[in-house]
Design a protein around this nucleic acid. Structure first.
Lengths: 241, 241
DNA sequence: ACAAAAGTGTTTGCCGTACACCCATGG
DNA sequence: CCATGGGTGTACGGCAAACACTTTTGT
């Protein structure tokens, strides 16, 4: 058995014990000052050490009777209306002994998504930041945000995860704006509609949206067929037909 | 602050502490009795409670100065030659309070891969089992194995992860046998070579393999261009050309 | 000559992108 | 009737699967 350093808590049979925190990276496509839509992440300002003054992802410890998922929901609920969360999935677990300079803490991160129109009430010290224009973050939270963005972008290509970024009903133009902001590159509305329709994910409601004040043809209103994650394009190559 | 039940260890400021274990699902394509190749997983028989007598994935606690990755390598080293591991990646973290009936333990699982020809020495209680013919496993390890297989199958389609299942040099026929076993369905050798060549992953060494005793044209010998994971087919739809 | 195994060429179909053109509305 | 924005049709290129045919070996 290894030497029992006094700063390493162990249980009655000598097994090492650790703090475990759940970390939430909540993303939303939001209109920024200049009217452009940007993929943004919810951050909270820290008022105590370590990293006092910096921004961090919402996070906190796991309680004895709960799972990691309920822990992350509980800590997110302090910063944002959790009822607005349309998707939540685990990203990964970070265990570098030095990731929290104050105390060894293992951390499991989650990706959360909020639809674009929602404007949840935020407490004083919480705010949204565009993911490509972040301040210096506490801990290893910059890496967690990067993982969240990478995961979202990948899943926009082969799942129906767009449902979690959109309100219940929308036009192709609105959908396109969200995809452009989330993916970070241009998207042709024609192709967007065709790809999602072919995959059976985009279904027309039959309704039409009213044209703007400057005219233009009224747009069809769509919704996503499913509101839970579905892999629509399993990219399984080498499979017999 | 919640009530401090005596069975929940906490640190000096009242934060709950947990056992944390690393779990390794090591997969290899192996020849089974009837000469067929099967995707198999390394299991170890348990000799103590809980789940005494059942098989389980190699696992064990994290030590204070190490990461989860070094912990899983350390515990795997007791069952298999870790130098043979050609790939290791994190799968996920399981936190159900009841997943270990003896003691609350959070567990992070890893997928490890070993090339098909290697025959690592195993200790007494360890053995390989075909993944589609498993005994009842301890804890939630059946779910972990399923995650490992799903992850491997997905990555065979869009990454070069085949390198981790193969020896340094091989023929297309040998490569095909491994893909058939790992994917669980037939693969045409023509298409396999074409897909991997188009992606730049399969390169001929210039050597030829000797034909078998029953004749046949000698086969070209190939190797994988890279021996670290590369995403070869980012399946990024909706991207401008 | 024949069997066995490997490699090549060709066909078919689908998917995703781009682009030009047509449609519906407000002013 | 023109500007504005939405929708449709079509063409092109690429990729993957299937399959028939050819090549090279051992017996």
């Amino acid at each position: 058995m290894p030497s029992m350093a006094p700063h390493t808590p162990r249980d009655s049979v000598g097994v090492a014990l650790y703090r475990h925190e759940a970390i939430g990276a909540v993303l939303q496509v939001r209109l920024v000052d200049d009217g452009a839509a940007r993929l943004s992440v919810l951050l909270a300002g820290r008022d105590h050490e370590p990293y006092a003054g910096r921004f961090a992802l919402p996070s906190g410890p796991v309680e004895p009777e709960e799972t990691l998922e309920s822990a992350v929901l509980r800590h997110l609920a302090e910063k944002v209306d959790v009822a607005g969360l349309t998707h939540l999935e685990q990203l990964g677990t970070r265990s570098d002994p030095g990731r929290d300079p104050a105390q060894r803490t293992i951390g499991t991160s989650y990706l959360g998504l909020v639809p674009t129109v929602l404007e949840p009430h935020l407490p004083e010290r919480a705010a949204w930041f565009a993911v490509d224009d972040l301040p210096e973050l506490a801990f290893d939270h910059d890496i967690v945000v990067a993982q969240a963005v990478t995961r979202l972008r990948a899943k926009l290509s082969y799942t129906n995860i767009g449902f979690a970024l959109m309100p219940a009903e929308f036009t192709v133009a609105e959908l396109r704006e969200v995809y452009v902001a989330a993916l970070g590159h241009d998207v042709k509305p024609t192709n967007l509609e065709r790809v999602l329709t072919r995959r059976g994910q985009l279904v027309p409601t039959g309704e039409m949206s009213a044209p703007g004040t400057k005219g233009g043809r009224p747009a069809r209103v769509f919704r996503f067929r499913d509101h839970a994650l579905v892999v629509t394009d399993p990219f399984a190559v080498l499979r017999p037909e």
